[in-house]
C-alpha cells in the first residue's frame, strides 16, 4: 500500500470508530427528537420551523424550553435568553474540549464546536483522557450521525404531532415538566444542588404568583445562581482540586 492509501484507510477506520460510539447516543436521543417535533407543533410551530430549530440549535433541552416559553407567549427576547441560559453549560465544555482540538484548522474547529453537545463532550473528553488523539474525522464520525438523526426525527415528530387528536389523554401537555424534572434530578450530584433547586423553586413560584409569567423563569434562575455565588466556596465544592 502507498502511504496515501494507508492514511486514507486509517481515516476511514477513525470515522467508523466514531460512528460506532455515536449509536447509543442516536438511540437514546431519538424519542426526545420525535417528542420535540410533536410538542413544537402543539405549541404553535410549523413543521418547517421545528425542522429548522433542530438543524440550527441542535440542543434538546434548550429547544424544549424554547417551545414551552413560545407556547406561553413569552416575549421573544426572553425565549432567546432562556435558550442561551439552558445552553450556557456548553461554555464549560467548550473551555474543556478547546485544549484537545486547538491543533485543528480553524474551519474544522468552527464545525467541531457546532456539534458540541453533552454526549459529544463526554465521549471526546474520555477519549482524550485515555491518551488517544481527538482527530477531526473521528470527532465528526461521532457527531454527524447524532446530528442527522436528530434533525430528521424532529421533522418526523412534527409531522406526526399534527395527527394526534387528543393531546390531553396522551399527557402531551404535561410531558415537558416531567422531562425537565428528569433533567433537574440528573444534576443532583452537583455541589449545592438541593439549596439551588429549593431557592429557584421558591423564587419562581413567588414570582409566578406576583409578577407573573414569564418573569418567574429569570427571577427563579437568578435566585438559584446567586445563592451558589454567595455561599462560601467550601460549600460549593469548587476551588479545591484533588
Amino acid at each position: 500500500m502507498t502511504a496515501e492509501a494507508i492514511s486514507e484507510s486509517r481515516a476511514q477506520s477513525d470515522f467508523w470508530d466514531g460512528v460506532r460510539l455515536s449509536m447509543p447516543v442516536v438511540v437514546a436521543s431519538a424519542p426526545f427528537a420525535v417528542l420535540f417535533g410533536a410538542l413544537a407543533v402543539d405549541n404553535g410551530f410549523s413543521v418547517l420551523e421545528a425542522f429548522l430549530m433542530s438543524a440550527m440549535i441542535f440542543g434538546g433541552a434548550s429547544q424544549m424550553v424554547g417551545i414551552e416559553l413560545f407556547g406561553q407567549h413569552v416575549a421573544p427576547w426572553l425565549v432567546v435568553l432562556s435558550i442561551f441560559a439552558v445552553n450556557f453549560r456548553h461554555v464549560l465544555y467548550s473551555a474543556g474540549i478547546g485544549r484537545r482540538i486547538a491543533h485543528w484548522p480553524v474551519l474544522q474547529q468552527a464545525l467541531g464546536y457546532f456539534v458540541l453537545t453533552d454526549p459529544q463532550y463526554a465521549i471526546a473528553e474520555a477519549r482524550a483522557e485515555s491518551g488517544r488523539p481527538v482527530g477531526f474525522v473521528w470527532y465528526m464520525g461521532l457527531g454527524l450521525p447524532v446530528y442527522v438523526f436528530w434533525v430528521i426525527e424532529s421533522a418526523l415528530g412534527a409531522v406526526f404531532g399534527k395527527l394526534i387528536p387528543d393531546t390531553h389523554a396522551l399527557g402531551i401537555d404535561f410531558l415537558l415538566p416531567i422531562y425537565f424534572l428528569g433533567l433537574v434530578l440528573g444534576f443532583r450530584k452537583r455541589p449545592l444542588w438541593l439549596p439551588v433547586v429549593a431557592a429557584s423553586a421558591a423564587a419562581s413560584i413567588i414570582a409566578y404568583k406576583t409578577v407573573g409569567s414569564p418573569w418567574h423563569v429569570s427571577i427563579g434562575a437568578v435566585a438559584g445562581v446567586l445563592l451558589a455565588v454567595i455561599l462560601p466556596p467550601h460549600h460549593s465544592g469548587v476551588g479545591k482540586r484533588p
Partner: peptide, 15 residues
C-alpha cells in the same frame, strides 16, 4: 456556573 442548569430548569417545573 455550576448552578445554572438546575436553577433554570427548576423554574420550568415548580410553577
Amino acid at each position: 456556573l455550576n448552578a445554572v442548569p438546575a436553577a433554570v430548569l427548576t423554574t420550568l417545573v415548580a410553577p
